[in-house]
């Protein structure tokens, strides 16, 4: 025993066993209920799109890793998550090639140039999504009638409708036709994985309880959207739907819990996260009203991500230091 040499390292000598892979698997698990609801509502097309998205993302990552001569990082599951999120954010009627292009772009442009996981300044899936949404503005709006809809939805006249533009294609006067409860329970038209605010909320709370995400950014985002929509609705009921309508449609809930809580593209300090969400939520409502052709919530979060380094400067006063207003 005396002459045996032991391992030497710096403290701490124990860890809680959490790994990047586990956190990503938890995130995918949190998304699963909303994805399954989407599969139920939109059928096998939705399943196929998600499968294609994941396959394309993983294939691109494996190929680029090999070309760049790096060890493959597929095992951490991030490529799967990227493909999944991308596919869940498009409507079920889009052509397959659109999702493939989006997934390839997400990895090729959004993730790999920035080195290992943690370098991407913008959520890679959003990069892919916005590239295809901007390039093929008509194809991206291939909304499909869900299996259970509360009323006859005007999917056919979609392109003419005015708002909210990344959400249900109805105009403000139609809002009264939709019960808030139906929207909340996921009986609406929208992207595959984003139509069920209830399941997304539960998934998000699961992430927060598992300490994979923090509550500040989602909370800030929902408050920001609610307040902005509330003000807009009070000022001009004909031009802006109510707060609950904004919160329960489109990718608002998805954005709050799964996009605002990304790692590298969002702040890590408590106030930074809250303000990031708050301003992002307000911006999303503004973009919806001002008339983006598609994807107000993704665009708002992308724009906020570019400002993440600024929000990261809002650090709390360290223990025992006097607050300074520098």
């Amino acid at each position: 025993m005396i002459n045996q040499r032991f391992v030497v390292s710096i403290s701490p000598h124990i860890k809680n066993g959490r790994t990047v892979r586990r956190m990503i698997v938890t995130t995918i698990a949190a998304l699963a209920p909303a994805a399954l609801w989407g599969f139920y509502q939109f059928g096998l097309d939705a399943v196929a799109l998600v499968a294609v998205g994941i396959t394309a993302a993983c294939g691109t990552e494996a190929l680029i890793s090999r070309l760049a001569g790096k060890s493959s990082s597929l095992s951490d599951g991030h490529a799967v998550l990227t493909g999944l999120v991308l596919a869940l954010l498009v409507p079920a009627g889009v052509p397959f090639w659109l999702v493939i292009v989006g997934a390839v772009m997400a990895i090729l442009v959004g993730k790999m140039p920035f080195g290992p996981l943690g370098g991407a300044p913008i959520y890679p899936a959003l990069v892919g999504l916005l590239i295809v949404a901007t390039s093929w503005p008509n194809e991206i709006k291939s909304y499909v009638q869900p299996t259970t809809a509360p009323t006859e939805l005007k999917v056919e006249g979609a392109a003419d409708a005015e708002f909210p533009r990344d959400a249900v294609f109805i105009d403000p006067s139609d809002e009264a036709e939709y019960k808030t409860a139906d929207l909340f329970m996921g009986k609406q038209v929208g992207p595959i994985g984003a139509i069920s605010p209830l399941l997304l909320l539960l998934g998000g709370l699961f992430l927060i309880l598992r300490r994979v995400a923090r509550w500040q950014a989602p909370f800030g985002f929902l408050v920001g959207m609610g307040v902005a929509a509330g003000i807009g609705h009070a000022l001009d009921p004909g031009g802006c739907a109510s707060a609950s309508f904004h919160l329960f449609t489109g990718s608002a809930m998805f954005g709050a819990f799964f996009l605002c809580t990304d790692w590298s593209s969002t702040p890590v300090t408590p106030w930074g996260m809250f303000l990031f969400g708050l301003i992002g939520g307000g911006l999303a409502v503004l973009l919806r009203i001002a008339g983006l052709p598609y994807g107000a919530v993704p665009w708002a979060i992308v724009i906020m991500s570019l400002a993440t380094p600024i929000f990261d400067r809002i650090t709390p006063t360290p223990f025992g230091k006097v607050a300074s207003h520098a």
Partner: peptide
């Protein structure tokens, strides 16, 4: 039971900032 250090690049998840008792941003 001995675990070896991995020292992968920071992924920016912010867990360290959440637990730091001194309210630093250890990842940064």
């Amino acid at each position: 039971q001995v675990t070896m250090a991995v020292n992968d690049p920071c992924v920016g998840c912010g867990l360290c900032a959440m637990v730091c008792p001194i309210r630093l941003t250890p990842g940064m």
